[in-house]
C-alpha cells in the first residue's frame, strides 16, 4: 500500500482524491451506484450500436417471418391445425430468433476484443452479465411486440392479452438469462454458433414448456386460470434461479 503512495505523482490527480492517513486507497469499486452506472453504460452502448446498425433486430425479425411463413406453408392444408400449434410456434420462433440475437450481442464484444476492455475496466464482472441480459432482453421484447402483432393476425388468436404479454415477458427474461450464460461459453469455443442451440435449447426447455402451455391456455376460449397461475410461478422460479446462477458463475466464464 505504501508503495502506491510513493508511486503516485504529486500533481493531485483525481483518482487519489481519497487519501486517508497518507495512504491512498484505491476506491472500492463495489459500491451499488457505480455497479449500476456500469450496467447502464453497457446497456446504453449496446442500444447505441443497434441504433446505428439495426442489425440485431432486423435479422431476428426477418428470421421470424421466414419461420412463420414456412410453417404456415407446411400447415396450410389445415388452418385449424395451424391455429392449434400457433402458441408452440410462437415460442419456437422466439427461442430460435433469440439465439441469433444472443450470438450477435456477444460476438460484438469479440470483434475487436472489446470484452478485454470491459474486463480491465473497474467494473464488476457480474455487472457485465446483467447488462448483456438486459440489452438482449430488450431486443427480444421488441421482436415479440412484432410477433404478437403478426401472430394475432395470422392465427386469429388474442395474443395481445395482458396475461399472455406477462408470460412472454417473464419467459424472455429466463430464456435470455440462460442464453447469455451459455453464449458466453459457446462464443469462446471452436464451434461457436453451431454449439449454442445444442447447449441452450435443452436447458431452456423446462422454461419454454410451461410458458407455451400457459400461453396456449390464455389464448384458448376457456382459459383455466390455475394452470396459468402455476405456470407463471414456475416461470418466475426459473427466472430467479437461472439469473442467480448466471450472476454468480459468469465471472468464471470470462476470467482465465
Amino acid at each position: 500500500m505504501a508503495k502506491l503512495a510513493l508511486s503516485l505523482p504529486k500533481r493531485g490527480r483525481w483518482q487519489v482524491a481519497e487519501q486517508s492517513q497518507g495512504i491512498p486507497v484505491a476506491r472500492p469499486q463495489a459500491t451499488t451506484s457505480s455497479f449500476w452506472t456500469a450496467v447502464w453504460s453497457i446497456v446504453w452502448k449496446d442500444l447505441r450500436i443497434e441504433q446505428h446498425t439495426r442489425q440485431t433486430l432486423s435479422v431476428m425479425l426477418m428470421f421470424s417471418l421466414v419461420v412463420v411463413v414456412m410453417f404456415n406453408f407446411a400447415l396450410s392444408t389445415d388452418l385449424d391445425a395451424a391455429r392449434q400449434v400457433s402458441t408452440g410456434l410462437l415460442w419456437a420462433t422466439i427461442i430460435l430468433a433469440g439465439t441469433l440475437g444472443l450470438n450477435r450481442s456477444l460476438s460484438i464484444e469479440r470483434e475487436n476484443q472489446t470484452i478485454d476492455a470491459l474486463l480491465i475496466a473497474p467494473v464488476d464482472r457480474r455487472g457485465i452479465y446483467l447488462a448483456k441480459v438486459i440489452s438482449v432482453t430488450i431486443f427480444t421484447l421488441l421482436l415479440e411486440v412484432a410477433l404478437v402483432f403478426i401472430f394475432t393476425i395470422f392465427f386469429n388468436k388474442p395474443f395481445w392479452q395482458p396475461a399472455a404479454l406477462l408470460v412472454l415477458f417473464l419467459g424472455t427474461i429466463g430464456y435470455v438469462a440462460a442464453g447469455v450464460l451459455v453464449t458466453s461459453m459457446t462464443i469462446q469455443t471452436r464451434s461457436r454458433e453451431v454449439l449454442l442451440p445444442i447447449l441452450l435449447l435443452p436447458i431452456v426447455l423446462p422454461l419454454i414448456l410451461p410458458a407455451a402451455i400457459a400461453t396456449a391456455e390464455i389464448v384458448s376460449l376457456q382459459p383455466q386460470m390455475d394452470t396459468v397461475n402455476s405456470s407463471i410461478s414456475l416461470i418466475a422460479a426459473y427466472d430467479l434461479a437461472i439469473l442467480a446462477v448466471g450472476f454468480f458463475s459468469y465471472p468464471f466464464l470470462v476470467e482465465s
Binding site: 446505428h52 470483434e111 475487436n112
Partner: peptide
C-alpha cells in the same frame, strides 16, 4: 493498448 483496438466499430 492491446494489438486489438478494443473499440466498437459501429460507434
Amino acid at each position: 493498448v492491446s494489438h486489438q483496438t478494443l473499440l466498437y466499430g459501429d460507434l
